[in-house]
């Protein structure tokens, strides 16, 4: 399998605070990679470096190389806007656009891409909502406001919004931390479906979740990548003592 995302020597800073210290990792195509670690270990910063969202924070800097399909997304001629269109993101709290309807929320990214024909939009909106397992619940109220849905539905709406622009990679930043167990179950179910077509990186606080949904797991601590391996191996025979301490609940 070919490495889809190759990160080498990545350092990220907020002002003078160093959030990531020399990360080297190769993330494979069409698998789910979980990123775990205690709060403040840099796991969110790490995935925000992959879609160039880290740099929109004032005072944030970074150095190193992130290759997506062999091309450095931080090279001088790389356009962050085009890169973000290839890499979807789902955030910690559901954040649909409150002024837009369910339909328009899903279509928002398409309209940015210049897709305006009603027929095209209708097809993609329906397909995206079906992929995010929300279609059945909202097909009769596509014109209702996006924020009229429940939290779990809103999060699936955000997933549909990310899917609509046909990204290659989808980043999930603790997507279930604001959701109840039933909604969490639905999102996890969805991840299984999505990994057939997309490369998925999910940051999670919840180790059971990482064990359930991911194929590979990366363990971050204090801005460093401590261990990265098959999920099974990380949870059954970790090589590093710190990983073992963390997954057995001795700290974090």
């Amino acid at each position: 399998m070919e490495a889809e995302i190759k990160v080498s020597n990545l350092y990220a800073y907020f002002g003078s605070i160093c959030a990531l210290r020399g990360i080297n990792i190769s993330i494979k195509e069409k698998v789910v990679t979980a990123v775990i670690g205690p709060s403040g270990c840099g796991k969110s910063t790490f995935i925000r470096c992959i879609n160039r969202l880290h740099e929109v924070v004032p005072e944030a800097k970074l150095s190193g190389e992130v290759l997506l399909g062999g091309k450095d997304i931080y090279s001088a001629d790389a356009d962050p806007i085009l890169i973000r269109r290839k890499i979807g993101m789902v955030f910690q709290r559901p954040n649909p656009f409150p002024a837009l309807s369910i339909y328009d929320n899903v279509a928002a990214g398409l309209k940015l891409n210049g897709i305006k024909r009603k027929n095209d939009l209708d097809g993609i909106v329906e397909r995206s909502l079906k992929m995010s397992a929300l279609w059945g619940e909202v097909k009769d109220k596509l014109n209702a406001s996006g924020v009229s849905l429940s939290g779990g539905q809103q999060q699936r709406l955000c997933i549909a919004r990310a899917l609509a622009v046909a990204p290659e990679v989808i980043l999930f930043d603790e997507p279930c931390s604001a959701l109840d167990p039933i909604s969490t179950g639905k999102i996890e179910e969805l991840l299984f479906q999505l990994k057939k077509n997309y490369t998925i990186i999910i940051v999670t606080h919840n180790m059971q979740q990482a064990a359930r949904v991911s194929d590979y797991t990366a363990f971050f601590l204090l801005g460093e990548l401590v261990e990265f391996d098959k999920t099974q191996d990380i949870f059954t025979k970790p090589k590093d003592n710190r990983t073992e301490d963390y997954i057995t609940g001795r700290f974090g």
Partner: peptide
């Protein structure tokens, strides 16, 4: 989070 949602979709 609203701004980042738009940025992550590739908005200018």
């Amino acid at each position: 989070a609203q701004r980042e949602a738009a940025l992550a979709l590739g908005a200018t």
